[in-house]
Write a protein that binds this DNA or RNA. Structure first.
Lengths: 251, 251
DNA sequence: GACTTTTGTTCATATATCGCACAAAATAAA
DNA sequence: TTTATTTTGTGCGATATATGAACAAAAGTC
């Protein structure tokens, strides 16, 4: 790609949108400038452009994003085959086992939920398509990382901010790499309260017809409902069925 | 705002992202150019920029968005107070009545779901935060339109592509305007299979402390579970409670 | 109230992008 | 295969944008 095949203004604008994350709904020009590293003048122009287009609101001091911004992500969720293909399977699976079921893919050091069938909520955070969790400590993340070449998986683990969410969280790169090997061997990943106390989850990879892992499927359950062993005996068989049914369908 | 406070390249890039909508996951440069009205060279530069940044994938022929694009919408959902504030109320409400409950806001001629607590799915489409429905034929849409000045509501109605989803769908602007008046008077909107056969829903406005309508709250139920009258007698009181509880909390 | 610091805006200019026109490649039709 | 037709890639002049410093206006300190 040539140098001139890159629209700098567009790229800068996108970083400005991403600056509005995690409990930062209202930002001043200076805030955005600091957050993105862009010049104040540039940040201002991007923000005013967003406001002009209706993606942001401006009260003379603070900017905040409007719901119109959701059109951008929605373009992906409504257009991409994966979420639409897996949804009916998720609904059925979730119904059958009486627990929440989800499908996610990898984006950098995080997993991104692309489809979900929720039962009564058990986690402290509310997961919906578009939600993100750190890959290293999520069952689907383990499955997706285990499917990568070792070097890549290690690079992601090392780039992760590996904090111990609970006393059970594995944070050591070596321990995680060993865990990935087990996951590869078993064909599933089991997380026992590593992300949140009282929550267990089990995940399997979803492969396409050519055998490439394109996503992960999981079931999460309150620890009170199912022991670690229960997760495997009660839920894994149904998940295997979905896995097999989806294999020929996925690109 | 001065002319020069607008970054054209950014605005064009955003329209390129939006071109990937509704069953159009894979687009060529020419497709995007036609869809957006941008010059091919410009569309190409925007697409290559997206690919370079990891927001899109390019196989030499087709472009498709990657899950990274969800970061943009997620910036809104995770940062904006409204979704986070209402979620626990939605969970409780949904649990209490045994039906799905949602909160949405208006964006142009559509409503956008910003939070949802789903029970077993009854609609043919899968609704999640970010999902959109035409305002004129959705219960929350009726409530939000009824809260606007008449002229604005009429403008939106007339700009809508008012197709009759079912035999019950109201599509005449006059009929809709009268309906809005009723909604204003009653303080709620009831949709009886206008969007989809077998689905009823009821919505109330959510006002902030200053009395401004900032969103709408609804409950949807299969027609088999609840008559139109049931919707009002069984669900409305609980919705009123949530409405009252949220009033002092919302900005 | 005077001082310091932070923030927002403007401007000139160096630089990058836009969109046209043309060339090259791919695809479809003959 | 050859000929149309469509799609994609590229060079270039005109035009729009980014930059960083300078200024103005608030906001915060003493």
């Amino acid at each position: 790609m040539r140098e001139t095949d890159f629209v700098g203004g567009f790229a800068k604008g996108l970083t400005v949108i991403e600056a509005f994350g995690e409990a930062k709904p209202r930002l001043t020009i200076t805030d955005v400038s600091k957050e993105t590293g862009l010049d104040r003048a540039t940040a201002r122009r991007c923000l005013l452009t967003l406001a002009e287009l209706g993606y942001a609101a401006y009260d003379g001091k603070f900017f905040e994003l409007t719901p119109k911004i959701l059109r951008l992500g929605h373009a992906y969720l409504s257009a991409t085959p994966l979420p639409r293909l897996v949804q009916p399977y998720l609904d059925q699976l979730s119904e059958k086992v009486g627990q929440s079921a989800s499908v996610s893919v990898l984006d950098g050091v995080e997993i991104v939920y692309v489809a979900r069938a929720a039962q009564k909520r058990v986690m402290s955070i509310n997961l919906t398509p578009g939600s993100r969790l750190p890959a290293y400590c999520a069952s689907m993340g383990r499955v997706l990382l285990a499917a990568l070449p070792e070097a890549e998986a290690r690079a992601i683990v090392e780039a992760s901010d590996r904090k111990a969410n609970t006393p059970y969280t594995k944070t050591e790169p070596e321990a995680l790499m060993e865990e990935f090997a087990r996951v590869r061997q078993n064909g599933f990943a089991l997380i026992d309260q590593e992300l949140e106390i009282g929550l267990r989850s089990i995940a399997v990879p979803l492969e396409n017809a050519r055998g490439r892992v394109v996503a992960a499927l999981n079931i999460g359950a309150p620890a009170a409902h199912a022991s670690a062993e229960d997760m495997v005996t009660r839920y894994l068989p149904a998940m295997r069925e979905v896995q097999a049914a989806l294999r020929p369908v996925l690109a």
